[in-house]
Design a protein around this nucleic acid. Structure first.
Lengths: 257, 257
DNA sequence: CGACCGATTGACACAGCTCAAATGAAGTGG
DNA sequence: CCACTTCATTTGAGCTGTGTCAATCGGTCG
């Protein structure tokens, strides 16, 4: 796929708010990188590591997670193509959480040194990366709300809405339909519920006619209703007009803004 | 208190990892600022706002929060003196969550423009601010874990541990004792539990001899046990040696590292 | 003194957990 | 091409942590 132009999605992301000048685009496009493949469930980086490069998702999905005492884990983030998984290692030496591949994934490793050099040089690029970091924090904040104050059905609905919007922004979610190589156990660990209950919730969402959800394929059948159930508002994703225009009109997008 | 030197705590924080050169210190110390007082529960900034300055906590506590449909709210962060509450507004125009004063608080408003100018100019300062941003994200990640995968007693214990360490780092938590102007309702909204249950949990922590907890004053009586109950590990706070040295030896700090 | 707010307590309900077993799908090796 | 394994989904049954409701108590402030 876009291995040939590994930065296309990243550049697209970085330019979401402000266009970059051609020098800056070249800076990014000429960053040295190593492409690597990961199998499903393979660990990309482990908590406590002190990596010397950042990880850009090229295709597939990664997820951040922390393990607890009792063999449980909490997924703290889902990373889609175009996301940088561990930007924090750029300035915080030790990784505070682990990162693994959800399904098979292709990533690009970007060595810290040239990345830092670049960001020191170009204020515009620095700003664009700041935005990425703050966007990640905004998503984490919304996850805090999701995990803290919503019941299971809403948690799952909310996560599906978030993924739909994020994937659409990178062209992986046309027609309110996307596919993620997660199991219901992964879903459970992302939503802080048990796997058994995750299953029941998925069934309930199906029963309510909100989604088709076969295996890894999720098709949202009633966006407005799902938004309502999940108490979703996309403002924290900072997609502004870009995404809203891309969503089909007849689904009544104006509703949830 | 340190209104006379409003940046002392911030400088201390920024220099936690690397000392700043005297030029950089002067840069910071000469940032223009406006000091403002807030009463308990007063709103400092509201979701949707597009502020043109950042908010540095000088004394007292702020908290970030998001309201849900049903008159519920989730507290997403507690901000202690030395924290910058809304660094994200520097590059993300609209605020994704509200910020309020927990008790009476004194803050300094730092206009974006000189701040941006400064960060564009000094790579070292930029790095220090990056670290602050990433640290905030690391805390959010731990909150995600706390809310998603721990039961109520552990949630509260964990939060108390976190606060103890963070407050100690800014000299507000000597002897494993600190005071925060929160109510049990605030505690509940931070831990994603009901106020009634928060009360029961606090009582249980008292009963177990883990803490003295009168009104706003929290005294940790058995650090090791509290750490264990809360499944706490301070690595995500990136305090490194600094804090560990500051904690009393006899409390067996080596345990939880 | 009355009003108000926060802490506390008790009774009850229920969302979601655990345990355990069955079913289905997909891959492996003979 | 069929046993066999493995892994994910599904279903059922009972249990429990936590929520809700409602009342009480205590302190503070005007």
């Amino acid at each position: 796929m876009e291995i040939g132009r590994p930065y296309s999605r990243l550049l697209h992301r970085l330019e979401r708010f402000n266009a970059l000048c051609s020098d800056d685009r070249r800076y990014v496009a000429e960053l040295p990188l190593t492409v690597a493949n990961f199998a499903a469930s393979q660990e990309v980086a482990r908590r406590g590591d002190t990596p010397s490069r950042c990880t850009l998702v090229l295709s597939g999905f990664l997820y951040g997670h922390k393990a607890l005492d009792n063999s449980r884990r909490q997924i703290t983030s889902l990373l889609v193509p175009g996301d940088i998984a561990d930007l924090n290692t750029l300035h915080l030496s030790t990784l505070d959480h682990s990162i693994s591949a959800l399904g098979p994934a292709v990533v690009a490793f970007l060595p810290h040194t040239p990345l830092k050099y670049m960001l020191d040089r170009s204020p515009h690029l620095a700003r664009a990366f700041w935005r990425e970091a703050f966007l990640e924090a905004a998503i984490l904040r919304e996850w805090v709300v999701n995990l803290g104050r919503r019941e299971a059905l809403a948690k799952v609905a909310h996560l599906v809405c978030e993924l739909a919007v994020r994937l659409q922004a990178v062209d992986l979610g046309r027609n309110l339909c996307f596919s993620v190589p997660w199991t219901q156990m992964d879903l459970a660990d992302a939503c802080g519920i048990s796997a058994v209950h995750a299953n029941r919730v998925v069934q309930e969402l199906r029963r309510l006619g909100l989604v088709d959800w076969d295996c890894r394929q999720v098709k949202i059948r009633d966006w407005d209703a799902l938004v309502k159930v999940g108490d979703f508002s996309d403002d924290y994703l900072q997609m502004q007009t870009a995404v809203k225009e891309a969503l089909p009109i007849e689904q009544g997008l104006s509703e949830y803004a």
